[in-house]
Write a protein that binds this DNA or RNA. Structure first.
Lengths: 183, 183, 183, 183
DNA sequence: AATGAATGAGACTTCATTCAT
DNA sequence: GATGAATGAAGTCTCATTCAT
């Protein structure tokens, strides 16, 4: 792992653990075993660093989602694959979720970063369009459906991160969302 | 409006407009036409003040939701009333949403505040239980359903706050969620 | 002496002694027996503080020079009074000269400050004009004459601040400059 | 131009353009097309580099002034040659003046550098002595006369660098100074 | 000899909190 | 109770200098 990646990793961990507030750049430097100046060699500012983490996660997410797509699979099944993949991605990388949940609504993430992040769900958009053409998915504004699905992902992930002991099944969740959006 | 409320209001407006970071207590004092010391007479610290806003909103939300409940109304209709009421509450009070969206996942909101906030949705919990007894609502863990519904509210509100021009109907959204949770 | 003046005085002394470079705001605070924050209550930034010193000196200089003017005095005598007064002013306040000599050409002093400083020599300008009308002073561009006289003041002050032991008389200097500018 | 000279030139340009504060060594390295380390091979520190520029300019000035001297020329004419030469030197090399004006009074220039700089005006000193012997120049302390002349040079150069449109003639200035110092 | 990534001390500035009035 | 000037710890960021390559 090169220095830039080490910094990103250290920053991610501290930001999730303590929040942006409580994570001075000096702490990141310490955790990454570098001088503070080194961080500023790679990232113009703390905000740029945070955006870089955001984009990196989104790009990793995109790779995962892009691998899901297959032309011939029926819409419902494909949807389930997508849904499972996202959930699985953030479940395997709990720290990514911790970061996203905290930063999503923050003014620190620039529109540019968000635009890049949007690319990750290209496949889902195509899926929705196809589903609507086949009258399998409700004829509702794409953006609204995406927001809805995204919201459900977020809330589900929050739920499974809750420290209660109930049995948490992904099947239920997928069914909830599919029933919601299906025609 | 008494002094305490004036402070809460001023703080709310500034926090939403500028974010927590960019809202010094001095600015709140100025906007509330008080001295900084006065704020500290009412609230131990800035964090306590922010939690007080959180709790105040949640209590107002609770009042609105409590008024919705009527014994005799069928589950589906009652659900729609609840859903419409929450959305309407935060649509009428956009600033409340701005605050909640920003603070929800923040480590500043204490577990105590969150526990109090939980009271607001008592009615919804009862509704879900009843719906499940009547086999109208899916037999899924209450907490999961609540989280799901809450997430949908959040994502819908975010969507209608987006500056796009598409036609934003609450009916679609209510249907999405109902279809999701209904048996 | 109030707090603001204490700060200005402390800053002046440190700036002259160590240079701008080597004078952190923290040192000024320490010398002025205040917290650093207090300095920023009175002056937006270090640069603003430095400009405030500049302006304060120039205003004090103006007071001294304004007191010199008397309608009826002949040009040559008045000139000598002016010249003696400026030199005397900066000789009594060596520290002022140390400051001015260091900062005069610095980009830190804003055009606004310089414009204010310009007021200090109003009287001299009038004197030059009168002298030229009476054909006592050479018919050379006002600005050039002013610059010349100012330069001579600066260089004389530098000379008398030099740690050599030669006998330093103001009379010579005044004669030099008068001979230069007289018709 | 060898590497050392390239560095000096780049540094000079940046220092004049941006000021000392705003000229990091890294910027100098970039402009000189070298690594930062290379600069430190030639100059112990940034301050040493700045002093080297000072000395280099002074040495160039010395060459110019030394060329002026001719045994047989009368004092007044020789003075005018000297004066014209200095002004011309700094007018042709405006950047030198920018540097000197900014650095002259700075604590960065060491007494050693200043002593070397003093050599540049050897000829002028001889001239003054001769003028005084011949009772052509006022019998005033050499140092004072030198300082006076130097000050007038500085102020004249500042004046001609001012962005006003008045007609700027060197003749006036030379006359001013000559009238000042002549018996 | 040349390089420039790495370093970290230290600069400026902000702001939550206190306390004398 | 109300006030807001004073405080100084702590934050972000810069940059002169070093040293392994």
């Amino acid at each position: 792992m090169n220095k830039k990646e080490t910094i990103l990793k250290a920053a991610l961990e501290l930001l999730v653990e303590n929040g942006i507030h409580a994570t001075p750049v000096s702490a990141i430097a310490k955790k990454a075993n570098t001088g503070m100046g080194t961080i500023y060699n790679y990232f113009e500012s703390k905000e740029v660093l945070i955006n870089a983490i955001y984009v990196a996660i989104k790009e990793e997410e995109k790779e995962v989602l892009d691998a899901v797509f297959k032309e011939e699979i029926p819409v419902k099944v494909l949807f389930e694959h997508y849904y499972t993949s996202v959930i699985s991605f953030f479940t395997k990388n709990k720290i990514y979720f911790g970061f996203m949940d905290q930063l999503q609504a923050s003014p620190i993430i620039t529109p540019e970063s968000k635009a890049i992040g949007y690319n990750a769900i290209e496949g889902v958009i195509k899926l929705i369009k196809k589903g609507k053409e086949e009258h399998i998915i409700k004829n509702i504004d794409n953006e609204e459906l995406l927001q809805f699905i995204g919201g459900s992902v977020l809330s589900y992930l929050r739920w499974i991160h809750m420290p209660t002991t109930s049995n948490k099944s992904l099947t239920n969740q997928t069914r909830l969302v599919w029933d919601a959006i299906k025609e």
